[in-house]
């Protein structure tokens, strides 16, 4: 039982990161019907900005982290304006490739500047691990879970309890309707890209001290973000969070109770299993077409 709880705990802290990434993908997807296939590289970029700001500009860590999130927010606006709007008329295939290519540019840039090196990310807090019963809780687990939990509370509060949130929901429901009541849909799309990338950056900043900082940082998280979205129900905000947490726990349990070599493909297995059993995911609306 101890082992099961321990696995669940560390699965939840991993899952918190997946949840954040899945949620940031979903925010953009719900607003623009675009899935950002380059998101992993934006996650990486967020972490790299923190590194640059801390090491080269010598900002205190917290300020650096906030600045990096803001930079990525700005980058989101820029990406939407400069790269997505101009190809609006084209098919979805173009958006997919555009996001991949932008990711490549970021990764290529990071590689060009820091290619051969792998950096230890500065640590924020060094909390000694403590015990709850036989359960070990470390600073990382506590820190990540707390930040993600606070962030989610704020996010869902804004979404469901404020006027801004109601407007966002309205645009999600019907863009034309929203335009009629005077919402600037284009600006809305841009700001949702901004929010999505900023949230991704937050995930990158949280995970980098553990995964170390290198240009390929984001790749493994992207596919897990996808799996979390699929599991929770494609396009469902709450589903993305629940899916992320479940995926985190599932990886640990699969790894321990079945076979550790399955841990790496848990995400893929979940994607396929969801397809076979319930394509709509746990909380999804219908995403399939009937012809």
């Amino acid at each position: 039982m101890d082992i099961f709880l321990q696995l669940t705990l560390s699965g939840l802290s991993q899952g918190a990161i997946f949840a954040l990434i899945a949620l940031s993908l979903t925010v953009v997807y719900r607003a623009t019907t675009i899935v950002n296939f380059g998101h992993g590289d934006f996650v990486m970029a967020g972490a790299f900005f923190v590194y640059v700001l801390v090491i080269y500009v010598e900002l205190p860590y917290v300020f650096a982290a906030i600045s990096a999130v803001l930079i990525m927010l700005g980058m989101g606006l820029g990406v939407s304006r400069g790269f997505i709007d101009p190809i609006k008329a084209g098919p979805h295939i173009g958006f997919a490739m555009m996001s991949i290519s932008l990711g490549y540019v970021l990764r290529g840039g990071a590689r060009f500047l820091w290619g051969r090196e792998v950096f230890p990310m500065p640590r924020v807090f060094d909390i000694e691990p403590f015990f709850i019963g036989n359960l070990v809780v470390t600073g990382d687990v506590l820190f990540i879970s707390a930040i993600v939990a606070v962030f989610l509370l704020i996010f869902f509060f804004i979404f469901y309890r404020t006027t801004t949130g109601v407007i966002i929901q309205a645009v999600y429901q019907s863009e034309r309707g929203a335009t009629l009541i005077g919402v600037n849909v284009r600006a809305f799309h841009q700001s949702m890209w901004g929010v999505g990338l900023a949230m991704g950056a937050l995930a990158g900043i949280l995970i980098a001290p553990i995964s170390l900082l290198h240009p390929d940082l984001g790749a493994t998280f992207l596919i897990r973000g996808f799996a979390a979205m699929t599991l929770g129900g494609f396009g469902s905000l709450g589903g993305a969070v629940v899916g992320g947490l479940l995926l985190g726990v599932a990886e640990q349990l699969f790894g321990f109770y079945i076979n550790s070599s399955l841990q790496d493909i848990t995400a893929y297995l979940i994607i396929v299993a969801v397809l076979v059993i319930r394509p709509a995911g746990l909380f999804g609306r219908t995403v399939t077409v009937r012809v």
Binding site: L7, Q252, S261
Partner: peptide, 16 residues
């Protein structure tokens, strides 16, 4: 025990 590249947690492996 297997631990693949890019994984960021080894709880399951360590406990085993």
């Amino acid at each position: 025990q297997a631990l693949e590249r890019g994984q960021t947690d080894a709880t399951a492996q360590v406990l085993k």
